[in-house]
Amino acid sequence: MKYVMGQYPVISKSNLAKDIYDLTVLCPEAAETAVPGQFINIKAEGFMLRRPVSIAGIDRENGTLRIIFEVRGKGTKEIARLNSGDMIDIIAPLGGRGFDTQSYETAVIIGGGIGTPPMLPVAEKFGKNAAVICGFRNASAVILQDDFNKTGAETILCTDDGSAGRKGFVTDALDDVLKLKKPDIIYACGPKPMLEKTAETASQNGIPCQVSLEERMGCGVGACLVCACKSIRDGQEIYAHVCKDGPVFNSGEVLFDD
C-alpha cells in the first residue's frame, strides 16, 4: 500500500441528493495507483479524526479521484462546505485490499444507499458483462443511475417503499437475477444486514462474493487497530482491520455476528 498525503484542489462539486455530495479532486499521484474499493481519508477542519470516504471514480488520464459522501454529522458537514477551487486535505488511496476485478468475466454488482458509489468503478470495469442492483430508501435518495447506465451494465433499481424502481430489497432482486444466470462473482457494499444476506445467497449458489465493509476508523493506515471486523483466518477467529486488511473482504472471511 502506497499513499500520499497533502492538500489537493477540488475541481468540481455537485449535490446529488439531500445531504449527498459529489467532489472531484485533482490528485494524479493517488489516481495513478488507486483501485476500485479503496478509500481516501479526509481532514475535516477542527476535528480530531479524518473521515474515510470510498472512491467513486478513478480517472488516470485526468489525474482525478471522484468521491461521494453523505453528511452524517458535524465533520462531514464541514467537508461539504468545500467548493470547487478549494483545497482538500487527504491521505489517498487507502485500503490494503480493493475489489478483485481481474479474475472474473461476469458479475452482479450490488450497492445499498451510500454504499452505492464505490460500486461505480467496479461496474465500469465490467461494462455489459455486469448486472448492477442499487437499493435506496425512496426516490429522493436515489443517486448515480445515469452513471451506472452509461457503463453498459444492466441496471436494476430498488427502493424500500417502491417510489422508484421495484419495491423491496436488493437481495430480492439478486434472487431473481440468479434464477436467470449465475455470474462469476458478486460484489457488494451497503448496510451490514444487506451484506450478510448477499453473502448467504452467494454461498448457497456457490458464487464467490466480495463485500466492502465500514467501521469507525482512526488512523486509516493500519496502525491504531480500532476499525476491527470479526473474521476467520486460517480457521481462527480474529479481528481484522477494515483500513488495512480491507475494506474489501471475501464474504466467507467475514463473521457478521459481532
Binding site: M48, E215, R216, G218, C224, L225, V226, C227, A228
Partner: peptide, 18 residues
Amino acid sequence: GNKPPRIAETSGGMLNSV
C-alpha cells in the same frame, strides 16, 4: 481485543477501546 466500535470522537479528543 475488544468488540468494535472501538473509537468515538469527542470535543477536542477521542475515546478508544482497542
